[in-house]
């Protein structure tokens, strides 16, 4: 069998094929994106669609350029900050509550119906209440974001904690492990993956909370721009803000994914 670089020809061909497939997928994705943008632009120029209502890529770019000199970074910063604070608080508080519920079967049983109701309740409905309680402003937006992400975190983390391999817990018990030893040495490390999953879910949920909160009260942020654009019928502004929002969400998700890879490497998972 002929080889080069210590790899057999069959192996090289196999690797080539995997790489090729990856390239095809990326090229197709890119083509679809460009195709849609071009189609949108062409249809708008040919007046098949009304650019006033549907907006148009070139006008979005123009809006973007003019927004840069017009506090765009501040708006992005406000939304990003509110989201990050909301989802960090939601994850931390949610995890702490889950720890308490895991610790005490009694409290867990008592809380169950309340949690189920809280989980099904659209937290946005609490918006007006929250605004009255904590005041109209960033604090209300953060609380909405927190409320949305927290309940899901509680349920997801608790579920992860409860489903920790019972054989491993039994093993630790035979050594006489205390409840806190079982938690810190087994249950929590076993659920790093669950934690990152809920972080990932929480970015999306927290963004929902922040944008909805900004719809209700804000004077700044991407949600504010979207609502403002809608009210003054500037669809270019709305579309541009939505696209920026998508990019922000994507970057945050990638940030958490990076953190997860780092944690996994640290834990050898």
């Amino acid at each position: 069998m002929s080889t080069y670089n210590g790899i057999s020809e069959a192996r090289a061909a196999y690797l080539r094929k995997i790489k090729q497939r990856k390239t095809y997928v990326a090229v197709t994705q890119f083509t679809i994106l460009i195709g849609l943008v071009v189609l949108w632009e062409v249809l708008a120029r040919l007046k098949v669609i009304d650019a006033f209502i549907m907006s148009q890529p070139s006008r979005i770019v123009d809006t973007f350029v003019s927004m840069i000199s017009n506090n765009l970074l501040m708006h992005i910063g406000v939304t990003a900050l509110e989201t990050i604070i909301g989802f960090l608080l939601g994850t931390i508080i949610g995890t702490l509550v889950a720890v308490i519920l895991w610790w005490s079967d009694f409290i867990s049983r008592v809380m169950e119906p309340f949690l189920v109701v809280l989980n099904s309740l659209p937290k946005i409905a609490l918006g007006p209440v929250i605004i009255v309680w904590v005041g109209a402003g960033s604090q209300a937006i953060i609380v909405v974001a927190l409320a949305i992400s927290m309940v899901v975190t509680i349920l997801e983390m608790l579920n992860g904690f409860i489903n920790t391999d019972s054989e491993i817990i039994k093993m630790a018990t035979t050594f006489g492990a205390s409840r806190s030893q079982i938690f810190t040495k087994i249950v929590f490390p076993s659920n790093i993956c669950t934690l990152f999953n809920s972080l990932k879910v929480n970015i999306g949920l927290s963004l929902v909370g922040v944008i909805a909160g900004e719809f209700l009260v804000s004077k700044a942020g991407l949600g504010y721009l979207i609502v403002y654009g809608g009210q003054v019928f500037q669809m270019d502004l709305v579309m541009c803000s939505v696209i920026i929002l998508a990019v922000v969400a994507y970057l945050m998700y990638q940030g958490v994914a990076m953190l997860e890879r780092y944690a996994n490497r640290l834990m050898n998972l």
């Binding site: 491993i168 039994k170 093993m171 035979t174 490390p189 998972l269």
Partner: peptide, 13 residues
Amino acid sequence: IGYMLQSDSLLEW
């Protein structure tokens, strides 16, 4: 007393 179970229960991390 030392107790050994069917699963090795090694901690992967």
